[in-house]
Write a protein that binds this DNA or RNA. Structure first.
Length: 632
RNA sequence: GCCGGAGUAGCUCAGUGGUAGAGCAAUUCACUCGUAAUGAAUAGGCCAGGGGUUCGACUCCCCUCUCCGGCUCCA
């Protein structure tokens, strides 16, 4: 039997903390032994233990650690005030307004001060007060006052129960719950600081945010820090350099990449696959230029909505103004419009690997994942209203095939609805949103609704893929559009010789080839499945006299469609092996005297600890060729 | 765009108001080797760029560019 250490019942606790707070937690005793956390499970005084390493336990732990951080900062930096400090995935942050931004040395001091507060084992005390009292208690802290003023006085749970938590002399507005005392924080770390806008609003104060993390044990903290290091090793910018795939020359400009031969091969493989699948799913190929008259963007509406992220116009005297394309849609529209269309021509599916340029804000550029120049595997399908459903389903099939082929079996879909900045009639938005939902249901794709996240011209489905270390990335998108056809006055002649307006489906499978490649690099940590690897086989002759045979092996592999390289450098076998492994080549072949004599090779696959000696060349070739098969 | 941090050899990083350093990579030579680093030698720099302060600036100050961590943004 569990009892609250102050002798109150579960019912009391539930009432005190407020209804609907499933996470309500208190310190309890089991047979006289103090436990950290528990929550009432009924009104009869029964409790359920919350372990610190459970999701709820970590939430409480991190929330409490955030309080300790705020306490430390307010201690150390007189004249500072604090805003909010919530738990987040893997940690917490707290936002402050301070006279000077934090330096790395400041963060060390804060961490030390936090450790002292924790060592003092200060009890957290819950304090309930009225709105007026709270305004008085926090009168020196403008952000807290702003929060309290937002409390709705008519709400029962909020009326005269603004709650705060006090430990030592420090008090913070908080709904709780918290740990019983600061000493219950087993392991924490201050991570970094950065700027952040109050309430996320660019127009409001810029605060200083400090990120931290807290865990149920020192071992868990170490594990987390280790995972951070591992994630860093997967960083596509670092691997791009190490594997010689691409670079971002300063001379070229921010957000612009050059692709080296190995990256170029990787890209070619991805693009070839894109083209092949487009063909298989019934798309035609078009090609369009990188720029067009500014008027075009006026008509499409892009200039109204995204002028600030388009490269500015260019103009020779007497000529019209031109702009580099941030999108392919208007160009594909022009292909459609190049002649009169009949319902017999539809659906018309046009695809292109189209290079586009967007002037992304300087602060958001991030390697290949957010670049200023990139290539969309873009397509636009023009169809009749009757065809919309079937076409949407076809696009969903296409996207799923694409993602699965690259090893992304785990993905989730999101249906984004009408945003505030939108064009077109409300009724059409409803019809198209419904069509998208229905297609997802027919294809049995689980999805959630993202209210107001749609494009300005229509609702969309986004696919978020989960990578090898559990991160989600938005890649594919299917967008249903009834606005561009209207703006460009697209038509087709119906069966009854009537003039009709087609629907348009925008779709990108990878999204951006650059970004998708970056995600692949991080997903596979550079150790690509064989069909994607730029170099599939490293052939290592043991001594110079084996170079000739190595060349023969390379030709045999090449005949079987494999990409192989002979390492003829004047290095030891051990060194050449190390290079091949460091470059994460899927297969290493070593050839020496025995192999020359018997037409065999020594074969070692990436991830294997040792080789298999004396594999007949024919067998090795067949085996590797099979492994290198592209998924279909 | 905003806040902070940073930029030294191809890469990873030392360094100091007074002649620029290491490891790895590269090049050359020797070695001819059977599964994660053979040895030696050589070469490599407008210390991101531009202004200032100073007898003297890689070092201190200002501006620009680029990168990093966040915030805001992502048709």
């Amino acid at each position: 039997m569990l009892t609250h250490d102050e002798g109150v019942t579960g019912a009391d606790v539930a009432r005190e903390i407020g209804p609907g707070l499933a996470r309500a937690a208190v310190a309890v005793k089991v047979d006289g032994t103090q436990l950290d956390l528990a929550r009432p499970i009924n009104d009869g005084g029964d409790f359920e233990v919350i372990t610190l390493d459970s999701p709820d336990g970590l939430h409480i732990l991190r929330h409490s650690t955030a309080h300790v951080m705020a306490q430390a900062v307010l201690d150390l930096y007189p004249g500072s005030t604090f805003a909010i400090g919530p738990p987040i995935e893997d940690g917490f942050y707290y936002d402050f307004e301070v006279p000077d931004p934090f330096t790395p040395e400041d963060l060390e001091r804060i961490e030390e001060r936090m450790a002292e507060i924790i060592a003092e084992d200060q009890p957290f005390e819950r304090v309930a007060m009225s709105r007026e009292e709270a305004l008085d208690v926090f009168k020196d802290h403008k952000f807290k006052v702003e929060i309290i003023e937002k409390v709705d006085p008519t709400e029962v749970s909020a009326g005269d129960h603004v709650t705060a938590y006090r430990n030592d002399g420090f008090i913070d507005l908080c709904r709780g719950p918290h740990l019983p005392s600061t000493g219950r924080i087993p392991a924490f770390r201050v991570l970094r600081s950065s700027g952040a806008y109050w309430r996320g609003d660019q127009e409001r104060e810029q605060l200083q945010r400090i990120y931290g993390t807290a865990w149920a044990s020192k071992a868990d903290l170490e594990g987390y820090l280790h995972r951070l290091e591992e994630a860093e090793k997967r960083d596509h910018r670092r691997l791009g350099l190490e594997l010689d795939l691409y670079s971002f020359p300063e001379e070229l400009g921010s957000g612009l990449a050059v692709w080296h031969p190995k990256g170029g091969m990787l890209r070619k493989i991805i693009e070839d696959h894109s083209r092949d699948l487009h063909q298989r799913f019934g798309f035609d190929f078009v090609a369009t230029p990188h720029l067009g008259k500014s008027d075009l963007w006026e008509t499409s509406g892009h200039l109204d909505y995204y002028a600030e992220s388009m490269y500015p116009n260019m103009q020779f005297e007497g000529d019209p103004s031109y702009q580099v394309k941030p999108m392919n849609c208007p160009f594909h529209v022009l292909v459609y419009r190049s002649q009169g269309r009949s319902y017999r021509d539809l659906p018309m599916r046009l695809g292109e690997l189209g290079g586009v340029y967007r002037y992304e804000q300087s602060g958001v550029i991030h390697g290949l994942l957010r670049a200023r120049g990139f290539t969309q595997d873009d397509s636009h399908t023009f169809c009749t209203e009757d065809q919309v459903q079937e076409e949407l389903e076809r696009h969903i099939d296409f996207v799923i095939t694409w993602l699965r082929n690259f090893g992304f079996d785990d993905f989730q879909a999101e249906l984004s609805t009408r945003p505030d900045k939108a064009i077109g009639e409300e009724r059409q938005w409803q019809v198209t949103e419904k069509a998208l939902a229905q297609a997802l249901e027919v294809k049995k794709v689980r999805y959630r609704i993202a209210e107001g996240e749609g494009a300005f011209y229509g609702p969309k489905i986004d696919f978020h893929i989960k990578d090898a270390i559990g991160r989600l990335w938005q890649c594919s998108t299917i967008q249903l559009d009834f606005n561009l056809p209207d703006r460009f006055e697209l038509e087709y002649t119906g069966a009854g010789n009537t003039s009709e307006q087609p629907y348009m489906i925008h779709c990108a499978k990878a999204g951006s080839i650059e970004r998708f490649t970056g995600i692949l690099v991080e997903h596979y940590a550079g150790a690509f499945p064989m069909w994607l690897a730029p170099v599939q086989v490293s052939i290592i002759p043991v001594a110079d006299r084996h170079d000739e045979y190595a060349g023969l092996v390379k030709n045999r592999l090449a005949d079987a469609g494999l990409r192989a390289e002979v390492d003829e450098s004047n290095e030891t076998v051990g060194d050449k092996i190390r290079r091949a492994l460091t470059q994460k080549h899927p297969a290493v072949i070593v050839v020496g005297d025995d192999d020359v004599e018997n037409s065999t090779v020594g074969l070692r696959l990436y991830g294997e600890e040792r080789d298999t000696r004396g594999v007949p060349l024919i067998e090795a070739t067949n085996r590797l060729a099979e492994m290198a098969q592209r998924p279909s």
